[in-house]
Amino acid sequence: MTAAEIREEILDILSDIAPDEDLSGLEDGVAFRDQLELDSMDFLDIVMELRKRHRIQIPEEDYGALASMASTVEYLTPRMKDMERA
């Protein structure tokens, strides 16, 4: 998957987790927490969804990498580059 595809995938997961949020104006460089009503369980749900969909394991010490869209994509790109988007 390319960085752009990974971004799309994250948006898709976010729209499941926060169905009431408008994600169209999401700024990649700004923390999710500052733009969306996400709590720590929501972040855990992102982690669990990535494992379920792509068998990606994110250890707890790396959860900080999921702070914003830009940092999430950067973190996932090397881990997902050989995968096909479903």
């Binding site: 855990l44 982690v47 669990m48 494992r51 068998r55 995968m83």
Partner: peptide
């Protein structure tokens, strides 16, 4: 409830890591 979720996530990580080492990962 939320603590049950947090721990379930850790258990899943463990089970998945073990199944990877036992069976070659050829399902990607």
């Amino acid at each position: 409830i939320n603590y049950g979720v947090i721990v379930a996530n850790e258990v899943e990580n463990q089970l998945m890591a073990e199944s990877r080492t036992r069976v070659p990962a050829n399902d990607a």
